[in-house]
Design a binder for these strands. Structure first.
Lengths: 345, 345
DNA sequence: ATGAAAGCGCTAACAA
DNA sequence: TTGTTAGCGCTTTCAT
């Protein structure tokens, strides 16, 4: 007696039940006015009754909008397989992803996750967007020479970067005032009476690392310390330990350290303590990022806060704006840092 | 002279350039044989020449396949806004996400990320799937009573869970042999000559936490220790510190600790050391998960390894299989744990 | 304010 | 082996 075919209901079905045309049902669903309120009610009932859900593919086909965006995590080349499984272990990517997801959900859109550390993977990202699978891309990369931004721009695809690209590309991005952040660290160490200060900087091909180093050096210079011993690390705990070991050997009387991220700062703390230095009594130490290691370390680290979640949300906001109205010129938004003071200084 | 309209090329365009029909081009693209190799060549050239990319929406509309899946991260209720921004800071979610992404990319598919900690968010997940936005769901939840699995099953949507649901639901899942893992920890502490052993367990409404506790107790019982002092924690470092403090107050002579995860284990180490106990000389300690804190802690933690990435990949594999051939009965795959021995024991 | 009808770009019978 | 054709479910002019 009942229909044996359990097809999922379509607009047509709703229209038939409501006794109106497909067009009218479509109007009601898409919230277009000029629909008699009585009919609106009837249509809504019919939607309920049929259990109708719009088919996104059909809608996308005509609107030419996927209603989705891609979140691309790009790493340095040569990390290979490792990258995929480790990227999310990095709280940096994690917080950015969280910020993006949390912002987008309020707009009813959910990001597709892609990795792009190889050339093949980058091509897939471009392809994915060209197929219309997504309307734009959010690109978070630690790799300063990443060729992906250029490709996206060339393909005319809406995209927003996290962090300014190393080479100038006409593309929107959000970033933090890294120099100002490092200056906060310098001012704070000086205010704690430190005079023999050193720094562990990040990889110098990363613009952010450069900016943190430059900002720190300039601020210290303003305080009368034109030369700051420096050791370069790779943003890992281990590299922080190695850098601290070198600095300690060359400057055994140091009394202050600024590390370009918390992971390296934590490594530095461990080396200092192993070498009989008390933190903060003998050596005061400031990190950067306010990431989990800053809290896990003992003493807990004074550190420069980067408002990652806000930055991520802003990045998404800009992307939606550009998708909505294309053809605008690129825009950048720079966020201010802050200092969180804990027991390491 | 040249076409002013910069429409993105369609099958029709390629067909015209190649001098064949749409159907033939479609066959070439989808790798269907029965196409003359000479024509294949011509078509490929035409594709190159036109810069053609298939339109996924059009394809999905007829195949009734999105070619995508959802990765859902579900947290305990009441975490609210916090959840979104913190979920990815948790290395557990991060490693699972990494494993999933890494497996799926080899199949040319990229997951959509969704959060589902509120009822509204759960409804969105079901809706997203019903709209045909994705073909199935991978659900990673720490919330044992999560109603989402049930809803997915009821809606007839393909889904695979990480971890066995608290209430029986006819759904596929992957899990680890938690009891066996905890038994490894017990055996190891005994082999280190520890006799006054305590444990910090996880929240007892979480099946995995229950299993770890039960497994540990049973293994210790087999070694002649029928009673094991226990303190319940919440899987956080802070709760680990609190639990260790309580245990130390009641059993100042304890010489071995098993914590149900590394975060709590790390908290325990800090409390032990603050109370003048050396690790591992005075107290040996075993954690669970082999997560970053296990390496960041000093001494580094002996811990039970859960092969999260492999489990994640298997979860994705099962889902693809079910999408490919629906109507199979649920399946579960249980993974074996291993022990990583470091300096804490 | 509502309906009729024309596609969006693709795949899959079915013919040839 | 190749082409013809009929939709997939929806939005959107254009009439009315």
């Amino acid at each position: 007696m009942s229909k044996p075919a359990a097809r999922t209901p379509t607009l047509e079905d709703v229209a038939r039940v409501a006794g109106v045309s497909r067009a009218t049902v479509s109007r009601v669903i898409n919230g277009i006015r000029n629909v008699d309120s009585g009919i609106q009610e009837t249509v809504r009932k019919a939607i309920q009754a049929t259990g109708y859900t719009p088919n996104q593919a059909a809608r996308s086909l005509v609107t030419r909008r996927a209603g989705t965006i891609v979140l691309v995590m790009a790493g340095a080349p040569g990390q290979g397989e490792e990258f995929a499984t480790q990227v999310f272990a990095d709280p940096f990517f994690g917080r950015v992803a969280g910020g993006v997801v949390n912002f987008l959900r309020n707009h009813g859109i959910h990001p597709v996750l892609m990795l792009a550390e190889t050339d093949k993977a980058r091509a897939e990202v471009v392809d994915f967007l060209r197929r219309g699978n997504a309307d734009g891309a959010l690109l978070v990369s630690t790799h300063p020479e990443d060729p992906l931004p250029r490709r996206l721009v060339d393909a005319g695809l809406p995209a927003v970067l996290f962090a300014r690209p190393a080479r100038p590309v006409p593309i929107s991005y959000v970033d933090m005032a890294h120099q100002a952040g490092a200056a906060l660290a310098a001012d704070h160490l000086i205010s704690r009476g430190r005079t023999r200060v050193v720094t562990i900087c990040g990889p110098l091909d990363v613009p952010a690392a450069q900016a943190r180093l430059a900002g720190f050096q300039q601020a210290m210079a303003r305080h009368g310390h034109p030369y700051i011993p420096t050791a370069e690390g790779g943003f890992t705990q281990q590299s922080g330990e190695a850098a601290m070991t070198r600095l300690l050997a060359e400057h055994p009387d140091l009394d202050g350290v600024f590390a370009a991220n918390d992971l390296m700062a934590h490594g530095a703390v461990l080396v200092l303590q192993k070498n009989g230095r008390r933190v903060p009594e003998d050596v005061a130490l400031v990190g950067f990022d306010n990431s989990p290691p800053a809290l896990a370390s003992r003493p807990r680290l004074t550190t420069v806060v980067q408002p990652l979640e806000e930055m991520a949300a802003e990045m998404a906001r800009i992307l939606l704006e550009r998708i909505e109205s294309p053809g605008q010129s690129p825009r950048s938004v720079i966020f201010d840092p802050a200092l969180v003071i804990r027991e390491s200084t």
